[in-house]
Design a protein around this nucleic acid. Sequence first.
DNA 1: TTTGATACTTACTTTTCGTAACTAAATGTA
DNA 2: TACATTTAGTTACGAAAAGTAAGTATCAAA
Lengths: 109, 109
Amino acid sequence: MEQITLCPRVEKGIQILSKRWAILVIYRLLSGPQRFCTIEAALPISGRLLSERLKELEQEGIVNRKVYPETPVRIEYSLTEKGRALEPVVREIESWSSAWVLPEEKVEA
Amino acid sequence: MEQITLCPRVEKGIQILSKRWAILVIYRLLSGPQRFCTIEAALPISGRLLSERLKELEQEGIVNRKVYPETPVRIEYSLTEKGRALEPVVREIESWSSAWVLPEEKVEA
DNA sequence: TTTGATACTTACTTTTCGTAACTAAATGTA
DNA sequence: TACATTTAGTTACGAAAAGTAAGTATCAAA
């Protein structure tokens, strides 16, 4: 499996965004800072993986984690400047989706 | 794991694009039709998965498969109109990557 | 002292993915 | 005719990633 790279930055960028749930989490955070439990409730993602993914996005400098030492503890996740810079990407996905994606049909079990 | 959906179409759109290798394959195909072996050589993807992913993208109506019964057989994959409509998404990822993503450092084993 | 809430973490199972070997079809070569 | 060659896969199997569910840490109110 050899690679002939078009552009290594773009390929790395795509890799970051292609990780499962990454774009969906960013999509949520574009509407403002959110707590862990709010993101968890909004997406069909497991807490285990959300925790992992947020940590990765934090390491990439896309997401910011802020602890409020209240009771019970409140932790807010928000987008960094690098994260907010992804807004045009998400907006383009939005308009593509509106134009081309059919809403999922609910399938009964 | 309950969901409160912002927009079901957008979430489905994001899900489609979030599948591993999907955007990278589309990125490649934006520069024109490509054969199976060319895409395989260009990305660190296994043939097994490329085959699977292309089949999925074909079912989503994003990719087109054309068989040339030459010897040996030649099969060209290209983007449909729905697939080409993703170009703005990829262009935005490109500009985000140029602005924010650092090139990967090669790590010696 | 117990309960309750949030934000995780751990243990375990299921699904997805990568590797490598194999198949199918069509031709060229000995 | 038999065998090799090339492309585009498929299959079998082990490894890695992700889902599920239960447990932990922290703090403070009851």
